[in-house]
Amino acid sequence: MDLGTFLIQVLNGVQYGLLLFLVASGLTLVFGIMGIINLAHGSFYMIGAYLAWSLSQHFGSLWLAILAGVVLTVLIGVALEWLLINKLYHRDHLYQVLLTYGLILVFEELRSVIWGNDVHGVAVPEWLAASIRLTDTLAYPVYRLWISAVCLVLAVLMYLLIQRTRLGMMIRAGASNREMVQSLGINIQLVYRLVFALGVALAAFAGMIAAPVSSVFPGMGNQVLIICFVVVVIGGIGSVKGAMAGAILIGLVDTFGKIVQVEIAGFRVLPELAGMTVYLLMAAVLLWRPEGIFGRRL
């Protein structure tokens, strides 16, 4: 592999990592900080993608579709928290797993009823549709670079929200001791409702932004769900910085795992085992630091 190709592959890895961060950011908030295990996170990603497809056809613009889609998914998030999730805060994690797994099935069925089972494509907005030529055979799509930029902006905003604002302080305090925060006169119920809705909207937003590059198809949410949990766990539960580091690390490992050829004792280890590299990385990180790279000591 020459230097040029190597650098492009690094770019691929970082870019994929940033996309992973975008998808996992909502989960960082809901699972990492609030401590709610939300298996339906992937479903919201899928719902976002389908909304981007159907609304952009309706409005004729992806931007309007994203705007309307975010408003819609915030409402869905608030409604879900009010109807279901808030009944489970004081229960065991297992109940949250059961409930949100049930939600996966419900959303998958609703998707089938409302939008059908076909594969759809979403057009890249005109002014981002170009590609930058890197070598005589390879070009880089501008839209992917734009996604990376959006991810970076979002990461900074989330970091500021959690670490530097009053709301962020309430969220963090609520995560460590709910009752105490409540007795100090803060409406923690409302804070949680908002944060959950924000998490749902972030997942859906990720689906909408990713729709033009990933296409829209049934079961697309399940593909991202596991990897999102891996990102949050590697980075350290409760840390936005950690989620970013975890996502980039996974992006690079996944990228190079697919193309580097490694042989040990005549047996081709890579890329044959490319599907496992990410999970081996997770195992290694957890052995080294059980709380994750940027996690608080347990």
Binding site: M1, D2, T5, I8, Q9, N12, G13, Q15, Y16, T135, T137, L138, R144, S214, Q223, D254, T255, F256, K258, I259, A274, G275
Partner: peptide, 17 residues
């Protein structure tokens, strides 16, 4: 590429080189 992964970018780079 592992099934059903759809992140093709690194493989496309490899094909180009």
């Amino acid at each position: 590429i592992p099934f059903p992964n759809v992140e093709f970018q690194s493989l496309l780079t490899e094909i180009a080189s």
